[in-house]
Design a protein around this nucleic acid. Sequence first.
DNA 1: GAATCACTCCAAAGCGCTTTGGATGAGCAA
DNA 2: TTGCTCATCCAAAGCGCTTTGGAGTGATTC
Lengths: 397, 397
Amino acid sequence: MSKTLRFVSACQSSADAEKFNNHAALQNLYARQGALHVAPFRSNLPLEFKALWKYLVNLKQLSEYLNLSQTTVSRALNGYPEVNENTRTRVLKAAQDLNYRPNTRAKGLATGRALAIGHVIPVSNQHEMVNPVFGDFIAGAGAAYARAGYDMMLTLVPDQEEVRAYQDIKARGTVDGIIVHGPIINDERIALLSRIGLPFVVHGRSTDVNLPYSWIDVNNRGAFERGTQFLIELGHRKIALLNGLEHMDFAFRRRKGYENALRNHGVFIDPSLMRSEEMTEVYGYRAAKEMLARTDAPTAFVCSSIITAIGVRRAVHDAGLVLARDVSIITHDDALSYLENGDDVPIFTALRSSVRYAGSEAAEMLLSLIALPSHAPKTRLLEADLIIGRSTGPAAT
Amino acid sequence: MSKTLRFVSACQSSADAEKFNNHAALQNLYARQGALHVAPFRSNLPLEFKALWKYLVNLKQLSEYLNLSQTTVSRALNGYPEVNENTRTRVLKAAQDLNYRPNTRAKGLATGRALAIGHVIPVSNQHEMVNPVFGDFIAGAGAAYARAGYDMMLTLVPDQEEVRAYQDIKARGTVDGIIVHGPIINDERIALLSRIGLPFVVHGRSTDVNLPYSWIDVNNRGAFERGTQFLIELGHRKIALLNGLEHMDFAFRRRKGYENALRNHGVFIDPSLMRSEEMTEVYGYRAAKEMLARTDAPTAFVCSSIITAIGVRRAVHDAGLVLARDVSIITHDDALSYLENGDDVPIFTALRSSVRYAGSEAAEMLLSLIALPSHAPKTRLLEADLIIGRSTGPAAT
DNA sequence: GAATCACTCCAAAGCGCTTTGGATGAGCAA
DNA sequence: TTGCTCATCCAAAGCGCTTTGGAGTGATTC
């Protein structure tokens, strides 16, 4: 009887158990379960089991069904050598037939591994924006995890509680490693995680951190240097930068690239042409509108996000100007799935680097880091492609 | 000695254990650990513990430290009544001092609850787009989970493997319930999940499903009826609909609303003015460009996404037309954080409904569903606000 | 004074899995 | 026959937590 109850509660929340006692299929199963103790199954007996996929089977039941010990069944399923090949195929078939799925929590407890990866997204309550890049990054990473049989865990962390949050993650043991999003300059999370001993890969880098750590990043400085230089070669001299928040490492590097290009070509670096904010459409619009109203209006904009670039375009139109002819725009493009930058001819001239690809690579890096913890940190620098679209043209003379 | 090793391995990956054996603080701790067996700690003794936050403590160690049984400590921490208040405060203080965090997997195994919620995102490999809405939805939900002490788990499911995937999720026991994203018309997942007995809340609804189930949705039909009617009242008669994929339930309902409005006002429903695709910018651009080139070009567009609307706007500009004067646009607006629809005066006239709020509400619904499984399914219909922006005007005569 | 009760606390049995340390028996050489 | 190796399997001890079924106090009641 207690056995039945266990079985029922495995199928349905206990509150629903009663109603399910009347369920024909369950009754059927119940009878068989009882029979288990009287005369154990032969593998050729129970055909009904196959149809009963919704009733969960655990290792113990599976092993009783097979007349084998849990040890042997476990080993057969996990590919250990000390089991006869005939036995193994028999076990695998039974597992398939009874739709056996090992309980992740139990497996995790026993092995010490969680078979899950955490993604920690910092949320500041000042600008509570979700990075639009996140969805595509996750999509890339998720595929890699699925292949390796890992789950993906998400944690939103308010930025005051960061230290505590990471300790928690380690202590609660829900993940084997984490991907760190949105690194800032001199990000203390890196030292923290190294000390804690939780494997991690940073999406981005952190200037001023001297510890070795694993990261994957776009060459932001290089890309923005190249993009800016491209505008300079088109004759532009008053080039605005609409950057992201510059405590973010990526934005800091982009500004460096932008400034490098200007400096290399002897162009004055004008702080009044540089903005640093959360990269929304409205930000692009406002900043561009304001700058275009000046007597010494910029003739070109470098944007950190295609969304901001869309805002700039709106301001250009509003001002009665024509893109590429009067004002040029070049933008970073993360190749987001819902914001394709045009098709054959891109809308915006852009520095393109697929964030989805980055997600996939980051996941692979982390998985191999977890598999071989003794290996040195890996790093990966992705180059952005400069793709010429319809938003740039020679500076008006 | 074995005790030490356990401790070390709990702190650092085993590969790093060696180097940490030399670490002064660990040595210190090691000594104390050994001492545990000779003369158990008094709570006033070990001050050093406080500094050693990075060394994880489990329930057994905590209880030894306190000279209490694991039972009592567990009860004290989980708020059970059968423990003296003095004892409880002593326990809580010690837990704080030693930075004790219960192991989630173990807790889950023991209680049968995972303390985690799953989000299952269907990915089709035809159009492998990540719904841009997802980030904001998650942000809303995540806050609710965090408050309740739940983790958030993400699973990407290729749409052929759906049935198997949900069975897996149930069997592996990693979550207590799930949020179903992107319901289609007559979505079979709903019946499947009901049978499986996994609590769930659908973000959206599914037409033609007659089972009772929990959902939260925007009144899509009502919103689009209202929006279309608004355009009709402005004098528009040729109104195009740029909808999402219409096997998706939300898109299906939106078309119904659009058609209702036309029908109610005796306006001809022109299939050539209706499109149904993945809601990208380029889609909006192409469709609008094509339609605006016709002799009987539409004078207004109803869009299912602000991103598509941005594409339409681009086509309008390209055609040398002026928004609101020559062509009107009205769009659904999910109030995404990185795509604010302007500020005081919205860019687009829109049907606005915060998807972040929906996420937060969905999470609360699911949590209460899990807490009280016997309760009837809950449903929640959110109304979209019609907000007047600068993209609509009377039809040109 | 015995019985009852409320209040605290504890030992031990799980949860479902892995893994250690054998046990068993077949095969083979001496 | 004995002794040894291999191949195959198993019982039982964990993993870190919750929870059941008491046990030990005093205090209260009759």
